[in-house]
């Protein structure tokens, strides 16, 4: 099992970096090629969600992401934002659309509050193809 960890200040520009790293690790982990578009979208949605949660409450702490290559490919995204104040209609639309997308494209999805503090963890997992892991 190998883990790649990434931490970034809550800026939208860094979400693309997280997507690129996450897809590279997924490919190496043996996630089938026909699922990589969904992995890319899901990582982007989860990281954008974390960035938006930090920004809405003015929190500059880093967002953390872990990509773990094991029996499954597991992505975890942690934010440390507390409950949000009121958000605009367009922001709410994006939140709702993002949640719909994540639920539809990630079969193994968990969103839970962090223990011992404000924030949430999004965990997503995909099966890996063993044949593609033998040549490593």
């Amino acid at each position: 099992m190998a883990t790649v960890r990434l931490e970034f200040t809550p800026e939208p520009a860094h979400v693309r970096t997280a997507r690129l790293v996450g897809v590279a690790v997924a490919r190496r982990a043996g996630v089938p090629d026909d699922q990589l578009d969904e992995v890319r979208l899901a990582i982007g949605e989860a990281c954008a969600r974390a960035v938006a949660r930090h920004q809405r409450v003015g929190l500059r702490d880093v967002v953390a992401v872990a990509f773990t290559d094991g029996d499954r490919y597991v992505v975890q995204v942690w934010d440390h934002a507390g409950d949000e104040e009121q958000i605009t209609d367009e922001e709410q639309l994006t939140v709702d659309v993002s949640a719909s997308l994540l639920q539809a494209i990630v079969k193994d999805l968990q969103v839970r509050p962090l223990e011992g503090g404000p924030g949430t963890e999004v965990q997503m997992a995909w099966p890996v193809r063993r044949a593609s892991r033998l040549g490593r």
Partner: peptide, 13 residues
Amino acid sequence: DFMDSTGLGVLVG
């Protein structure tokens, strides 16, 4: 070649 929920939100708006 890639669009996320933010892009969808912009189109709806």
